[in-house]
Design a binder for these strands. Structure first.
Lengths: 207, 207
DNA sequence: TTATATTTGTACCAATTGGTATTTAAATAA
DNA sequence: TTATTTAAATACCAATTGGTACAAATATAA
């Protein structure tokens, strides 16, 4: 490795310094997209929420699409990181329990918008946003496939029945998750969502 | 009753006759809203789909909001009528089975957009459409409450256990339905959706 | 034929959409 | 100090948004 490149000095900024924190701005943008969806969020609303004006947003993040993608990555690595992390539980049963219960906590957290950004941000849209719509669909499929892979592992460990259809189980889990997201956005309380989860869990193999 | 008012003659149209069929136009509008959502549908797209120009749409249906409401009523009374009808089955179990299986058929019908209009048309939106968003939330709650009432009846008939929480059962059912809608919009096949339904049905009381 | 009623099509409206050109301000390097 | 680099702020852009004024067209009633 080239130390001159890997060891980054605090760096000496040449011109006028940035007047805002990029991470904070990205988080503010995430919250707006999360609450109003991709098309439901206007650049004007973003300038208000981030506290910086349009040319600065474009200079820092590209265009609206790019800003959304960066906010999405921030979401996956930040508030939604538990979705990836829960898979490290020792049994499939625990994976599913942790996932659904943490999902309920997450969806009803009052400090963030309700529901899931990846489910809601562009479920339907005009022609101009179908690229984002397709990218969100791909995200959903990716997460679903990751759960299927985890269940496949469980099957190999005899932690799930040999005749279990891991793809269907993963899709069942994803369906519950997406339904919970709609419910959370529609005003369901944490207790109501948790009761749904308890019903859904009754249905898991090797109960 | 006043026969002069109740018995309607075919009526003699005074001015220039309508050049389009109102029901067909409404159905065309429904299909566009169904596919692209409320905000994702522009008046320009509607004029194209209905084959009539804007002033005629406004004269016949009011404004965009009113047109959406009429398309929504058309949806509830037409393609989505089964949601109300399934509740007439003799047991709660049959109600749920019929509802979920017919939902899958409905969502994967290739002659109409995938998924449910009431779930997708305005899950998220800009400030200007929150009225429609709230109305759709009210629709969802109404249908969920109707299932809860049906389950309450089943409970009185000892068709469901006495300790069954009918509100939670109805919310569980609505959650599955809404999740299936997201899945259908994301490209899941009929077979995949049906497999999810079979898993969800395993969880019903008095199996 | 003429008057009246209603719908059509064109052309337009202000407001908002995402996106930028340009000038001014604030920093460092020479 | 001066040149250079970068960001901020204002003001603007064409395109699209939902919605309408108005005149021409098409029907019935008198």
């Amino acid at each position: 490795m080239n130390t001159e490149e890997t060891i980054k000095q605090p760096a000496k900024p040449r011109g006028r310094p940035l007047a805002f924190n990029q991470d904070e701005a990205l988080e503010a943008a995430l919250n707006v997209f999360w609450a109003h969806g991709y098309e439901g969020t206007s650049m004007a609303e973003l300038t208000g929420a981030l506290g910086i004006n349009k040319p600065s947003i474009y200079a820092a993040f590209g265009n609206k699409e790019e800003l959304f993608r960066k906010a999405l990555a921030h979401y996956v690595a930040g508030p939604a990181a538990f979705v990836t992390e829960v898979k490290s539980a020792v049994t499939a049963r625990e994976v599913v329990e942790n996932f659904l219960r943490q999902t309920v906590e997450f969806f009803s957290d009052k400090s963030t918008p309700n529901g899931c950004l990846i489910v809601q941000a562009a479920l339907t849209c005009g022609q101009g946003s179908s690229v984002i719509q397709q990218e969100l669909i791909a995200y959903r499929k990716h997460f679903e496939a990751a759960f299927a892979a985890r269940f496949e592992l469980a099957k190999a460990q005899s932690d799930l029945p040999q005749d279990a259809n891991v793809a269907s189980l993963a899709k069942y889990l994803a369906t519950i998750h997406q339904g919970l997201s709609v419910q959370a956005t529609s005003g369901a309380t944490k207790e109501e969502l948790m009761a749904v989860v308890e019903l859904a869990l009754k249905n898991w193999p090797n109960n």
